[in-house]
Write a protein that binds this DNA or RNA. Structure first.
Lengths: 350, 350
DNA sequence: GTTAGCACTCGTCAGGTGAGACTGCTAGAG
DNA sequence: CTCTAGCAGTCTCACCTGACGAGTGCTAAC
């Protein structure tokens, strides 16, 4: 019951048990630990230690005469230990190399994130994802209007870091191409270099200020810009790869069918993932959410390893989702590596 | 053994059996058919009929003292029957209404297809998909160049039917924005209204013809156009929705885990789906591929209902994928409805 | 505090049994 | 010649059983 500090031996037994279980997927017996753990004590002593650990809630027995299996709390202890030791030894290099290879020399930001999710999947064999920062704080570089049929216009916005986004708006009346391109030039000259949210506010302010706009061109440009920037808070694009790993039939079903369903739904309705992460992403570095620690009861039974990249208001996230029984050590270093690589890319591009 | 024409009674028994099995998912007994089929004969007679049907390969018994289950051949017979009767009674209206509601009044082509896959999923509760026609035959309407950082340029191409596609190219040297927009104007004026493949050929021809281009602007424009149109054969965008339905735990596992994996992989590596369909899509109307009729052995155990839309060279497809035990009648009318709706949209937009 | 040894518990597996579900067959009726 | 009633046969499923083995908890001795 007492969650007090564990003795060194107890810690080592727990760590070894978790590691063994992650590798084998089968309850770990005291005899096996005795052999593997390398501290010179007999299985009987280990059994006493295990009984303690069970009292404290770190391990449990599937049934009376089975070995021990880590609980979520046990995983948590193990992971915290890892996070402490790992902090120094980042081996991001191979992840970063693969990411550069995958994404090409100078990709669009979306391509980079898509590649990141793919690389995370490749390295971890679990579902990998990458989430873009909210567009609000992106630095406006350029806008372009492409006329479509009727009164519709395709708006292409480019922000720093090759962050391209597009949107279709309906202008109500047909605007000649020449007017569109002049409007674009005006906006590019006027607002280039500002954060998108500020551009939006500035546009609205000007429209308010000068009720009657004598300059027809400026009126068109500002109105177009306002419509374009209206929905700027909402999206945050999400990239996911490796959903097929959920059906991996390695040994037994790694996650329950209902959990699988929830995850697949998340793959489709990507914004759910964003909402999920908002709750967990605070500090820097890698965060791990294990099994029952999830708020959503459907997600107990799977773990989330996630790291934020970028700074201040312009933060995104990369990570992986897999069964609670995953190779945390590898997962953590891979996710960490990916976050560092994406952050570096952002810095270099600016 | 003889696949000869079935007697009216035999047909009705088979149809009733398939329908019952699709509804219940359990082997159908002679007594149940006797009750449901409504032809005034006893279960013993039904049993004789069933023995015949089994000889001919339309049904089988999971084990000696179980009811009958349709084979793929049985489903095939049932579906062919449906296709015959259904041809007249298209009730596309509700599908089309939902599609218009979902996609909005005048969507981009991609949005339309994305909505179509979603609506197919909604109506059938199976995986819905929509595939765009190859870009080659799209009618070129407009091109626009947006400068990115360094020597990279974002190219936005608009084809008829609000078919927008984009691509990043590296020009090697930085080109000033004004030159880019002039190049775009030149290309728009010169090639508007031609099929993209023809535009590509024309561009290449001109570059060949006039080795030394005195007009700097034309040189830039043509070179940009060539690079842009290089990879025009490859893509064919694919939209898929409802993968989570694969994990539906309605009754037992509807598809095997390995089939599920194959399908999930197909969801990720979408081009596989395109290759799959190329083999089946020939005539007009709805095509159904059932279980073992698939070439890919991994896909036995699931069925594909698909219909082409559009005409001639400019054909795409919509459809659904689900377990062999699916509501074919509904599936067929829904897929048919979606194909008709998408085709109508294409026609209206042109 | 540690260890050896032993009794005990519990899940798993193979084998066996009874009930229930349907069929195939056969003999007889229409 | 077609249909039907009835019955024996066969198979699955659920349940129980006992032997086995894995692994523990406990205790007494070091």
């Amino acid at each position: 019951m007492t969650p007090g500090p564990l003795s060194d031996r107890t810690r080592r037994v727990l760590a070894c048990l978790v590691k063994d279980y992650i590798d084998s997927g089968e309850p770990v017996a005291s005899a096996a630990l005795c052999r593997r753990a390398g501290l010179g004590v007999s299985s009987a002593t280990i059994r006493n230690v295990l009984a303690q650990l069970e009292d404290m809630g770190y391990v449990r027995q599937p049934h009376t005469s089975a070995g021990r299996v880590p609980t979520d709390l046990g995983y948590r202890y193990y992971v915290d230990m890892l996070l402490d030791t790992r902090r120094a030894t980042r081996d991001a290099s191979s992840v970063e190399a693969r990411l550069r290879e995958q994404a090409g020399a100078a990709p669009l930001f979306d391509q980079l994130l898509s590649s990141a999710s793919h690389v995370l999947f490749e390295f971890s064999h679990h579902v990998g994802f990458a989430i873009a920062p909210s567009e609000q704080h992106a630095i406006f570089q350029r806008i372009e209007f492409v006329p479509l049929s009727g009164s519709r216009v395709l708006v292409v916005t480019v922000a720093r870091g090759n962050h391209v986004s597009q949107k279709v708006i309906d202008t109500g009346e047909e605007i000649p191409p020449s007017a569109l391109s002049q409007a674009a030039s005006y906006l590019n000259a006027e607002f280039g270099g500002m954060p998108l949210a500020d551009v939006r506010d500035a546009v609205i302010a000007r429209l308010e200020q000068e009720r009657t706009l004598y300059d027809q061109l400026r009126a068109i440009a500002l109105t177009l810009a306002r419509t374009t920037l209206e929905g700027i808070e909402t999206p945050a694009s999400v990239f996911i790869d490796g959903a097929s790993s959920l059906a991996d039939t390695g040994d037994a079903t790694p996650v329950s069918l209902s959990t699988l369903r929830t995850l697949l739904q998340m793959v489709e309705e990507k914004q759910r993932l964003v909402r999920l992460l908002d709750a967990y992403l605070e500090g820097p570095g890698v965060a791990v959410v294990i099994g029952a620690e999830h708020h959503d009861p459907q997600l107990r039974g799977c773990s989330l390893v996630v790291a934020a990249y970028g700074d201040g208001a312009r933060r995104g996230a990369v990570g992986i989702i897999g069964p609670t029984r995953m190779h945390y050590s590898r997962a953590i270093s891979v996710v960490d590596g990916a976050a560092v690589a994406v952050a570096r890319f952002l810095r270099d591009e600016n």
